[in-house]
Amino acid sequence: MSAKKSPEELKGIFEKYAAKEGDPNQLSKEELKLLLQTEFPSLLKGPSTLDELFEELDKNGDGEVSFEEFQVLVKKISQ
């Protein structure tokens, strides 16, 4: 996936994966893993990378990643 996506496209991608289980407005760690493996495969170099990335993105510590938290990752990789 190209990092150059419109905000609407990014929101659609986020919602597609977030709706798989639990809260449709939040990504669980498994949903984030699936999204990254599919859309940004070069970001995941191993299991520790996912854990570190999830911890970094989950700013409020609720165990899930909101769209706002996800946007931090998108901004970081599009620079």
Rank of each mutant, 00 (worst) to 15 (best):
L34C: 08
I77L: 06
K4V: 03
S78A: 15
E30H: 09
E64D: 14
K75Y: 03
Y17C: 01
K4C: 02
Q71I: 07
S6L: 03
P7H: 06
S2I: 15
G12K: 13
A3Y: 15
Y17A: 04
L43P: 09
E9I: 04
T49K: 05
V65E: 00
L34N: 14
F40E: 03
D62R: 11
D58I: 13
S42C: 06
F67Q: 14
P47D: 10
T49A: 12
E8Y: 05
P41C: 03
E15Q: 13
K29L: 11
K59L: 14
Q71G: 12
L27N: 00
E52D: 07
V72N: 10
E31I: 13
L57A: 15
E8W: 02
K75C: 03
K76A: 02
S48G: 08
G12C: 04
S42V: 07
G61N: 06
D51T: 08
A19F: 07
D51H: 05
P47F: 10
K76E: 04
G12I: 15
E9W: 01
L34G: 13
E9L: 06
I77C: 04
P24G: 09
Q79S: 14
E8A: 07
L53Y: 08
P24C: 13
K75F: 03
Q26A: 07
E64T: 15
E21S: 05
S2W: 04
E56R: 10
G63K: 10
F54P: 06
E52M: 09
K59R: 11
L34A: 15
E55A: 08
K5C: 02
S42A: 10
E64A: 12
L50A: 08
L57T: 08
L44R: 09
V74W: 14
T49F: 13
K76F: 02
T49L: 07
L57R: 10
N25Y: 06
K29R: 13
I77T: 03
S28F: 01
E69A: 08
Q26M: 11
K11A: 03
E21Y: 07
L53E: 13
E30I: 09
S66N: 12
S28Q: 11
K59I: 04
K45D: 15
F40I: 12
E56L: 05
L73S: 02
L57K: 06
G12L: 11
D51P: 13
P41R: 07
P24H: 09
K4E: 03
A3P: 04
E39K: 01
L36V: 10
K20D: 07
V74S: 11
L43S: 13
L43E: 15
K75N: 03
A19H: 10
T38L: 06
S2G: 14
S42G: 09
G63Y: 11
E21K: 12
Q79F: 01
L73T: 06
K75T: 06
Q79R: 15
F54G: 08
L43M: 12
T49C: 04
K16N: 06
K29M: 07
G12S: 10
L35E: 00
D51M: 12
V74Q: 15
L44P: 15
L53R: 09
L34R: 14
M1I: 13
V72K: 13
Q26R: 14
I13A: 02
I13N: 00
D62C: 03
V74E: 11
L57S: 12
K33P: 05
K4Y: 12
F14M: 00
P7N: 07
L73N: 01
L35S: 02
P41Q: 13
V65H: 05
E30L: 07
S78Y: 00
E39V: 01
S6H: 04
L53V: 13
K5A: 08
K33Q: 14
K11L: 05
K59Y: 06
F40V: 06
Q26Y: 12
E30W: 06
E31V: 09
L32W: 02
K33T: 14
L10E: 02
P41N: 07
K5P: 02
E56S: 11
A3L: 12
E21I: 09
L10W: 06
S78W: 05
K11Y: 04
G61H: 03
G63P: 08
S66F: 04
E56H: 11
K59W: 14
Q71T: 09
L50E: 12
V65F: 11
E9Y: 09
E9G: 04
K33V: 10
K76Y: 01
F67I: 03
S6M: 04
L35W: 01
Q26W: 13
K76T: 03
K59H: 12
L44S: 08
L35G: 01
I13K: 03
Y17K: 01
K29E: 03
Q26F: 08
T38D: 15
K29C: 11
Q37I: 05
S66H: 03
G12D: 15
G63Q: 06
E15T: 15
L27M: 07
L53C: 08
D62S: 14
L57F: 10
L35Y: 01
K33H: 08
L35I: 12
E39M: 03
E30D: 15
S48M: 07
E31P: 10
D62F: 04
V74C: 06
L53Q: 13
F67H: 04
D23H: 06
P47L: 09
Q37L: 05
Q37H: 08
Y17L: 01
E15K: 09
K16D: 02
L10N: 01
M1W: 00
K45E: 12
V65N: 02
T38C: 09
P24D: 04
L73Q: 01
K75H: 12
K5L: 10
E55L: 14
D58T: 12
S78L: 02
G22I: 01
E56F: 07
F40T: 04
E31R: 06
P7V: 07
G22A: 06
D23V: 06
L57C: 13
D58C: 09
N60T: 08
E15W: 08
S28H: 08
F67L: 07
K5N: 07
E31S: 11
S2C: 05
K11I: 11
K33W: 01
N60H: 07
T38N: 07
Q79H: 08
N25L: 15
L27K: 00
T38F: 11
L36F: 11
K29S: 11
V65R: 03
G12R: 14
Q37N: 08
F54K: 08
D51G: 08
N25I: 13
E30T: 11
E69N: 02
E39L: 02
K45G: 08
F54V: 10
D51S: 09
S66C: 14
S48Q: 15
L44N: 14
D51Q: 05
E8L: 09
A3N: 13
P24M: 06
L10Q: 05
D23A: 10
E9A: 04
F40C: 07
E55G: 12
E55P: 12
K16V: 02
E64G: 14
Q79M: 13
K59A: 14
F67A: 04
E68P: 12
Q26V: 05
